[in-house]
Amino acid sequence: MSTGLKVIVQEQDDRLVLLTVAGALDHDTSAVLLEQATAAMGTPHHLVLDMSGVTFCDSSGLNTLLRLNRHTRADHTALTLVAVPAQLRRLLRITGTDTVLTLRDNLAEARAVHDRT
């Protein structure tokens, strides 16, 4: 059973948007993340997902992250996941997805990469 998902969108500047994600990212909630992230992709060149509040992620959530990655690449937008919890990091490593998605330890690291582009 899903515990819900909360997504807070914060525009950092005209080129970077931060989405803070909290709760379970699963079959029941993954559409919420995809919808919010897709809506936030309008102008910025960098979309950052703060995953520190994610308590659970299943294959549906993983699929959503991969779909979002495809959408951002097609839109010429960079996608970075920051503060990825151990359970999700393990899932990404086991599936090899950690080589497809860009992961950073914190927002400062993501911003430093963003500022260089």
Score class of each variant (00 low, 15 high):
Gly23Trp: 08
Leu68Val: 09
Leu49Val: 05
Val84Ala: 04
His76Val: 08
Leu92Glu: 05
Asn63Glu: 10
Asp26Ile: 02
Met1Leu: 10
Leu18Pro: 03
Leu88Gly: 02
Asp50Pro: 03
Val82Trp: 03
Leu25Asp: 03
Asp28His: 14
Val9Asn: 08
Ala86Met: 07
Thr55Ser: 15
Leu33Asn: 04
Val84Ile: 06
Val113Trp: 12
Met41Thr: 07
Thr77Pro: 00
Ala24Met: 02
Leu88Ile: 15
Thr38Cys: 02
Thr117Asn: 11
Ala86Gln: 13
Gly96Met: 10
Val21Phe: 09
His114Thr: 12
Leu92Ile: 05
Ala86Leu: 10
Pro44Phe: 04
Ala108Leu: 12
Gln10Lys: 14
Val113Met: 06
His27Ile: 13
Val54Ala: 01
Val32Gly: 00
Thr55Tyr: 04
Asp98Cys: 04
Val82Arg: 01
Thr72His: 07
Val48Phe: 06
Arg116Ala: 15
Ala74Asn: 12
Thr72Ile: 00
Gly23Tyr: 09
Asp58Trp: 01
Thr77Phe: 00
Lys6Tyr: 03
Arg70Phe: 00
Leu101Thr: 10
Leu81Asn: 09
Asp105Ser: 10
Pro44Cys: 13
Leu34Ile: 10
Cys57Val: 13
Gln10His: 11
Leu18Cys: 06
Asn63Ala: 15
Leu79Glu: 10
Gly61Asn: 02
Met1Tyr: 05
Asp28Met: 09
Val82Thr: 15
